[in-house]
Design a protein around this nucleic acid. Structure first.
Lengths: 334, 334
DNA sequence: GAGAAAAACGTTTGCGCAAACGTTTTTCTC
DNA sequence: GAGAAAAACGTTTGCGCAAACGTTTTTCTC
């Protein structure tokens, strides 16, 4: 590998001068500067960031831990975060934790060793052990779409989203409303449920416990939910699925069971994944503002890195209702 | 930050002993070893990988450059690659190039500076300038789903896939077959087209140039293609879309134009994204074996890193036809 | 019990760089 | 033209670690 010393020799100057030309940290006569640049060019020299990091104690590296998920919303968030951080001069180390505490521990250890400047965590379920690990980090940490008192977070305002979705169903005249929730520990699911309940309460509608399906935010959960909730005659006329995947699963299963969507059953989703508008019926859903979320997360993290200030913040990004075709007034038959 | 010197002081030994305990490179008396480990624990010490890299001249880091894409197939590949490389002891730096040569140049430069051990490139279009950049890298490079003579690559065998898809349409009795292709420079698209043409040739069917829509592998392209190809009376009875996104776009647009799929128009896709089976009609498509692709790519890269041997290989992974409901014999009306 | 061998650990260097500290050369200024 | 100031660059250190090289202590062996 070509080093700064090789360049210095090639240009007939000291390493100091090469360094100053590279970093613009000291005046160097134009002619010398050109010689150094020519030498760099000739030798195809690229400074070693390991050596720079060792010296300067910054790595321009951000860790990103995500629950490996096939949900396209996550993929979009990852891509946007990368773009934001690239613009801010950081590289991203991608870590798929798979919700496994051993992998989480291992990744945190590796990232500590790499002396990352900051960490982003995009996981919907955070165990106690994991939170402890995160709290032990000496670099700033920003959580996305989940939160906990001690750590800065940026989240979709899912209680508002849940409220918006449910209100839309209520406004369309539904009074028998079920939901396809996520697992107990899922932060955003809990919030969507709170919004769901609040909307029902305010409308004076009962929350039928049998019509709450605790699923897993995937296609299968939507299918199972419809099998379970819409099998008999006493069934909801509308379902609020806590993400688009389970909504699509629900619609598929409903169709197979002979229920027309939205004629016999209205379904509203959450996320607004790209495919949502293409589905038949086009999915009514709640759109998370991934762009805003990522911009804010990146901003909070980079400013925490720059300031060394560690005031904990909790940002909420308001989601938006997207009205399409999968929700309609309940049929006259009921 | 806690350094190896701090640990040595805390344990009352030399840095050398700490290093040997950490790396198991020399025998250390059990009692001393325990003292060192206790000190590491007490001080919460993690070795600096910058310093290790500087010394050992390896970084355990792989770069991954992808065209930032909302295509869920890409997201799956990224996640699988990360998992494979994690298992092999490498971390992944994610780079979204967005097909922009300036960003590509900038990423390559950064990755060179980071002294990555190897590079994976998942881009469907490779410009001349970009290939030159890649050739100038001193670390092993593996291309995914695109290839070029001088660099090792692992690809879906898209000519076979194109042949399989088209043959399926022909077997169902279609004789008027169009396709929704990708851009000219798109490697996999070109291959799928070759398979398409070969299947037509072998069946003695004409290739109608007007029925080839050069799109962009996205939803819009599928929509545009159907508007263009299926507007008048002289139209294909079946379309081979070169990816699922454009297939779904095509189906959506066909439905809006009053064409039943598969009754009036058969559509076959490519990729088998998760949503494909859920769509109405469930999409007949060609499945890329992402798991095999990623495993092989990871294997080729890590063994190139280990051996320093640089024999160029070109692997092809056979795709599989997935028969569902979007293809049927052409209607009797035609 | 003296010399040799083995066991167990320590001192030091160098990886590539940034920048503090230092030196030399040139240009003013009177 | 001598002293001071400015311009332009060089020498050296230290970041944290791995490991080559070295030293000390203990255990054999006869």
């Amino acid at each position: 590998m070509v080093t700064i010393t090789d360049v210095a020799r090639e240009a007939g100057v000291s390493v100091s001068t090469v360094s100053h030309v590279l970093n613009g940290t000291r005046f160097v006569k134009a002619e010398t500067r050109d010689r150094v640049r020519a030498a760099i060019e000739r030798l195809d020299y690229t400074p070693s960031s390991s050596a720079q990091s060792l010296k300067k104690n910054v790595t321009h590296t951000i860790g990103l831990i995500v629950t490996s998920s096939t949900n396209p919303y996550f993929a979009e968030v990852v891509a946007r975060l990368e773009a934001e951080l690239y613009a801010a001069g950081f590289n991203l180390i991608l870590c798929n934790s798979g919700r496994d505490i051993d992998k989480q521990r291992s990744y945190i250890r590796t990232l500590k060793g790499r002396r990352i400047d900051g960490l982003l965590v995009l996981e919907s379920v955070l165990s106690e052990a994991y939170l402890e690990l995160l709290a032990s980090c000496s670099f700033p940490v920003v959580l996305l779409d989940s939160d906990t008192p001690g750590l800065t977070s940026v989240s979709d305002d899912s209680e508002l989203g849940g409220y918006l979705a449910t209100s839309q169903l209520i406004e369309q005249g539904h009074r028998a409303i079920g939901c396809i929730a996520g697992p107990e520990q899922h932060h955003q699911s809990r919030r969507r449920f709170r919004g769901f309940r609040r909307a029902l309460d305010e409308a004076g509608l009962p929350l039928e416990p049998d019509w709450v399906h605790a699923g897993n935010m995937d296609i299968e959960s939507g299918e199972t939910a419809v099998r379970r909730l819409c099998g008999g005659p006493h069934r909801p006329t509308a379902l609020f699925a806590f993400n688009d995947f389970s909504a699509l699963g629900a619609i598929g299963q409903a169709t197979r069971q002979g229920l027309q969507v939205p004629g016999d059953l209205s379904v509203i989703g959450y996320d607004d994944i790209e495919i949502a508008r293409l589905f038949t019926p086009a999915l009514t859903t709640v759109r998370q503002q991934a762009g805003v979320l990522c911009r804010e997360a990146s901003r909070l993290l980079t400013s925490a890195i720059a300031d060394k200030a560690t005031s904990v913040e909790h940002l909420k990004i308001a989601p938006q209702l997207v009205v399409r075709d999968s929700v309609r007034a309940p049929g006259p038959g009921r």
